[in-house]
Computed example of a mutant assay.
Amino acid sequence: MTLVSPLIVGIVYCSLMSLVKEPHRRHFNAIMVGGAGAAYLSGGGFGLWELPFVALMAYVAYRGLDSWTFIGIGWLLHTAWDVAHWLKGNPILPFAHNSSMGCALCDPVIALWCLCGGPSPTALVRRRRKPGRTTDPVHDHASVPS
C-alpha cells in the first residue's frame, strides 16, 4: 500500500484537476507546482540549498502559467528533490518517515499528465476516437491500405 497509495493520489489529483476549465486548469497547476517548490523550507534538510531550489521552482511555475511543459518539468524537479530528501532522511512530513518517497511516486504521475497537456476527460476521449474510424483496429477499414 505504501507504493500504490501515492500513485492513486496522483491519478485522483489529475482526474479532479482535469475537470477545471482551461486556462484556469493550467494557471492553478502552475501555482501548485510553485507551492510544491517551497514544501521543504520548514524542514531545511539541505540548509541554504533549499533557497535556490525555491527560486528555480518559482521560475518554472512562472513559465508554467503559459506552458504545460514547464509545469511537468516542475513536478519532475520536485520528484528529484523528494528523492534527495528521502535518501537524507528528511521527510516532507516530519511525522511520516516515508512521506518524501510517497511524494516521489505521486509527482511523476502528475508530471506525465502535465507533459501531455493536462487534458480533460473529454479531450482524452476525443483523442481515442478519430473521426471516421472505429475503435476496433481489427475491423477498422479506414486504416487498411487500398
Results as ranks from 00 to 15, higher is better:
Met57Ile: 08
Phe53Tyr: 09
Val20Gln: 09
Ser42Lys: 08
Asn98Phe: 01
Leu87Phe: 05
Gly35Ala: 04
Leu48Ala: 14
Ala30Ser: 13
Ser42Tyr: 06
Trp81Leu: 07
Trp81Phe: 14
Ala80Glu: 09
His78Thr: 08
Ala39Glu: 06
Leu51Asp: 08
Gly45Thr: 03
Arg25Ser: 09
Phe70Glu: 12
Tyr59Trp: 13
Trp81Asn: 15
Ala96Gln: 12
Glu50Cys: 05
Asp66Val: 10
Ile71Ala: 02
Lys88Trp: 06
Pro23Asp: 08
Leu76Trp: 00
Ala30Lys: 03
Val83Asn: 10
Tyr40His: 11
Gly34Ser: 04
Gly34Leu: 01
Glu22His: 05
Gly89Tyr: 01
Gly89Trp: 00
Trp81Ile: 08
Met57Arg: 08
Ala58Val: 09
Ala80Arg: 05
Ala55Lys: 05
Leu48Cys: 02
Asp66Lys: 15
Asn90Ala: 15
Trp75Phe: 13
Ala36Val: 14
Asn90Thr: 14
Ala36Lys: 04
Leu51Gly: 11
Leu65Pro: 02
Leu93Met: 12
Tyr40Gln: 12
Ala96Ser: 09
Gly45Cys: 07
Thr69Lys: 13
Gly43Met: 07
Val20Arg: 10
Tyr40Gly: 09
Ala96Val: 15
Leu93His: 04
His78Gln: 13
Ala61Trp: 02
Ala38Met: 09
Asn29Ala: 12
Leu87Gly: 04
Asn90Ser: 15
Arg63Tyr: 00
Gly43Trp: 00
Leu56Trp: 04
Pro91Leu: 00
Met32Glu: 08
Asp66Arg: 13
Trp68Ile: 08
Arg25Lys: 12
His24Val: 15
Ala96Lys: 09
Trp68Met: 08
Gly34Glu: 03
Trp75Lys: 08
Phe70Arg: 07
Val60Asp: 02
Glu22Ser: 15
Phe53His: 11
Gly64Ile: 06
Phe70Asp: 15
Asn29Lys: 02
